[in-house]
Design a protein around this nucleic acid. Structure first.
Lengths: 204, 204
DNA sequence: ACGGACCTGGAACGATCGCTCCAGGGTGAC
DNA sequence: GTCACCCTGGAGCGATCGTTCCAGGTCCGT
């Protein structure tokens, strides 16, 4: 009866199952059971499994970026506040790991090379995430009295993302392996050192 | 006729397909076609798809660790040589990404939580990798005149792995996104800074 | 030459895959 | 009341899934 609500329920189920079992491992029957709606309803709302997957990725990405941007520190934020922000983002990432990160990683690895459109979607999500991080870094590193040009800010943002994502993967295999608070400190220390080294290199 | 050779061909095909399409995405028929052997031969050599997967993971992990240990710098290596070693290991990792890293990530994400035995196998491979890195770090950081205790070396090894793995994931989405040589420099810079900061913290 | 161990070829099993079809219930406009 | 539209229920399509069975080929020791 309520089509919009049904669509959301299907997306909820798809998001959860896809991020847990991957594309090939998630059957329409499983999504049907998890959402409580028959397969025909799924195919009324979505063209195909591929289409449903794309919609789930889209929604998950949008939610993740919303949460990320909402927590973004203001333009007057201190360096410590940014460290705090990164920490919170990572926790948010940790909470959304079954949805955003697992979905990106799993689908990117599994079907990325076979479905360029899906891969492009995932890539854009990553780019936008990097954009948010870069923007904050530029403002904050600028506030500290050092001049950071755009390419360097982009590189540091890339490295920060890689570092964080690697930590999330490590936590997947060993949930107790990485202390998140310590990790964020180390991330800040490392990125500051790399920024300093790169700037010294340019000016010499 | 030559059973041992057939077994290897099946493992080759399984390794390639599993690391590319994941567990659920790889059918016995596909492995049969890629190896040139009928399904019955696969089931003569292996009990089940699960058993074959475990064997493929085992062999890939062993090969990766062999390559890693073979390239390990000697006990007299300088800091620069270690950086060089890490760089080569990453390139090796890059070359073996479709086999070792993709396999670990994909299977860990996809079926890890459903198959604890497989997950344990993957975890052990990661632990041994970390052990090799930690051993080298201990020796090298020791040579630099600083005293590094075991827990710190372990933490730095964890962070190095996370950083490297994150970079590999980033390269999956954007192959041109990360300059490997620059990345290794940044890795060294960052880890040195983190080590120094952690040591200062302890001695204060 | 012969028995036996090792391995392959191909057919076939029930279950599940993504997907389609269509009858019919629910709801709002008129 | 009834018509049109939106959505659901369930049966069922051909294809593929993991797996099994077994006849028969190849190779070795004797």
């Amino acid at each position: 009866m309520d089509g919009a609500r049904s669509r959301e329920r299907i997306l909820d189920a798809a998001e959860e199952l896809l991020s847990e079992r991957g594309y090939a491992g998630t059957g329409i029957a499983a999504i049907s059971e998890a959402s409580g709606l028959p397969a025909s309803s799924i195919y009324w709302h979505f063209e195909s499994k591929e289409d449903l997957t794309a919609a789930a990725v889209e929604r998950t990405t949008e939610r993740w970026l919303e949460a990320l941007e909402a927590s973004e520190p203001g333009p007057e934020a201190s360096s410590d506040e940014v460290v705090e922000w990164i920490s919170q983002s990572l926790e948010e990432m940790g909470r959304q790991l079954p949805f955003f990160m697992r979905l990106s990683l799993l689908l990117g690895l599994e079907v990325g090379h076979r479905e360029p459109a899906l891969m492009e979607r995932l890539r854009r999500g990553r780019e936008r995430t990097r954009g948010v991080i870069r923007g904050t870094l530029e403002r904050v590193l600028g506030l500290e009295g050092t001049k950071v040009d755009a390419p360097l800010a982009d590189e540091i943002a890339r490295l920060s993302m890689a570092f964080s994502e690697g930590a999330s993967v490590a936590r997947l295999f060993e949930p107790e392996g990485i202390d998140l608070a310590r990790f964020v400190e180390d991330l800040a220390t490392g990125m500051r050192a790399i920024t300093a080294a790169r700037q010294a290199e340019v000016s010499s």
